[in-house]
Simulated scan of single mutants.
Amino acid sequence: MSGEGSAGKAVVEAKGLNPGLIVLLVVGGLLLTFLIANYVMYMYAQKNLPPKKKKPHSKKKLKREKLKK
């Protein structure tokens, strides 16, 4: 009797979603959500944050400043 019960459960599980597929979908969904959230934050930062001020590091300018001092 116990053998028949386990065989019946196996058939029911085979008809349903595979546990490996469920794990794959969950992990894939989390990864996709993470990537989309990163892209949204990147676009938000590009629009709203001021650009970084870059100091000129020209060798000629550095030499001139040293000579002036």
Rank of each mutant, 00 (worst) to 15 (best):
M1P: 10
M1H: 06
S2Q: 12
G3V: 07
G5K: 10
S6A: 06
S6P: 00
K9G: 03
V12G: 00
E13V: 07
E13Y: 14
E13W: 12
A14V: 02
K15T: 05
G16T: 04
G16N: 06
L17T: 15
L17E: 14
L17S: 14
L17Q: 15
P19T: 10
G20V: 07
G20R: 08
V23F: 05
L25T: 03
V26Q: 10
G29T: 01
L31E: 03
L31V: 11
L31G: 10
L32H: 06
T33V: 10
F34P: 01
F34Y: 15
F34A: 10
A37K: 13
N38W: 09
M41I: 07
M41F: 14
Y42E: 14
Y44D: 03
Y44F: 14
A45Y: 04
A45H: 04
N48F: 12
N48G: 04
L49P: 02
L49K: 13
P50N: 06
P50A: 10
P50F: 01
K52F: 08
K52E: 15
K54W: 06
P56K: 03
H57C: 03
H57T: 15
S58L: 06
S58E: 00
K59A: 05
K59N: 01
K60G: 04
K61P: 00
L62Q: 09
L62E: 02
K63R: 06
K63M: 06
K63V: 11
E65W: 00
E65H: 01
K69W: 02
